[in-house]
Amino acid sequence: MQTTIATAEQRAPAPRLVLSMATTPEEVREVQRLRYKVFIENQGLTALATPDGLDCDEFDAACDHLIVRDSATLKVVGTYRLLNPAGARKLGRHYSENEFDLGRLKHLRSRIVEAGRACIHPDYRGGSVIMLLWSGLAEYMRRHQCEYLIGCASISLADGGHNAVAVYEQLRHKHLAPIEYRVTPHLPFPVEKVEAARAPQVPALLKGYLRSGAWICGAPAWDPDFESADLFVMMPLANLDGRYARHYNVAA
């Protein structure tokens, strides 16, 4: 699969950004280097530092990896990690199950794609990269005949959790899933013990999910390794499909 995108500001003959799927171990390592830079180096998480400069775990081998390159430099500037039902069966679980009890979603497992490790290079966060990744995500879900997207959306705890509490309190009134789709965090973030910030700042990725019709499926989990509060997000493909392609000139 290879897709290119040209925004209204970029009408050069050769599109600047190119979307594809990682097909070699070296391409996966390129993805892992970008994730390391964004998730560990840029966040100053020295406890997670590794000599090889790679962010990797046991899920990588069972997942597919969408990548966006700058065609001028060939540098990987964006990625999404996707776990389809066959990969989840092979592993015996979804990544989200490290943080949440997904028992109520058991009957949907054959129709779920889990997306994670969404990562964009700091110099390429104008919007085009995530739009291109999401167009690839929608195509991937159709190809695997899946109807639901799940994943975790992280909110930094650098401010002591005040923004995370404010975001959760704001979203649970408008975007909370029906009870049959609710999940339970294994290690809840203590929202009742932290004062909410006055002006919630919703992370861009989470905001994008919500604009596409996603739900949050309950209270946030506490991820002490990455110093974040994580919300479990679920979105039907019907809500995602076509929303972002309409804003861009996307051609497969």
Rank of each mutant, 00 (worst) to 15 (best):
I120N: 07
H65E: 14
L137A: 13
K75P: 09
V113C: 14
S20C: 07
A245F: 04
E169F: 08
L176V: 05
L149N: 01
R93M: 13
L105I: 05
Q201W: 05
P25I: 05
D60H: 08
P188C: 13
A88T: 03
R33E: 14
D230W: 00
H144P: 03
E99A: 14
E30Y: 03
R35P: 01
T4I: 06
A22I: 03
I155G: 05
Y248N: 09
Y181A: 13
I216Y: 02
C152A: 12
G218M: 07
R172S: 11
A177C: 06
Y244E: 07
I67H: 02
R93F: 09
I155H: 04
G242S: 10
L82A: 10
H175D: 10
H162Q: 15
V77T: 05
S135N: 09
L171I: 01
S128I: 02
L157A: 10
P200M: 15
E27W: 06
F226H: 05
R89I: 04
Y80W: 05
E97Y: 04
V68W: 02
R243S: 15
Y209V: 06
G242Q: 08
E99P: 02
S212L: 09
M235P: 05
T184A: 14
L105P: 01
D70I: 00
G136N: 07
H247C: 12
R29I: 04
H107A: 12
L187I: 09
I216C: 05
